[in-house]
Amino acid sequence: MSQIAGHLEPYLVLAGILFSIGAFGFLARRNAISMLMSIELMLNAVNLSAVALGVFIPALVGQGIAFALLIIAVAAAEATVGLAIVIAIYRNRKTPLVDEYDTMRQ
């Protein structure tokens, strides 16, 4: 009898920890691409919880995976735009460090 893998909670706790790690990365890193990667971690945490909920909660069977698929697609769109912006700013400023983008705070 499985003690962990057959229950919902471990998956959600894993998702929560993953989300927190992503949030930490977002708050702590200076590099725009690192921050983007941190956001991807957060989105993956959300995905994991969506799938787990969809698998373990009878009323949601099927929905979880569908939801997660849509989130993956949204994340792809977001990443496309984000990386394009990063490339554009890199052309202008030659640095990917966000806290050096402070022209307006003079």
Binding site: F26, I39, L43, L60, I85, V98
Partner: peptide
Amino acid sequence: STEGAVKYFLLGSFSSAILLFGIVLLWG
């Protein structure tokens, strides 16, 4: 402009992720 955009994007995506986690938990 790009500087503003990168901040807008990063904070926007970050908040989307937070909101989305909340939505998923509510849904669950």
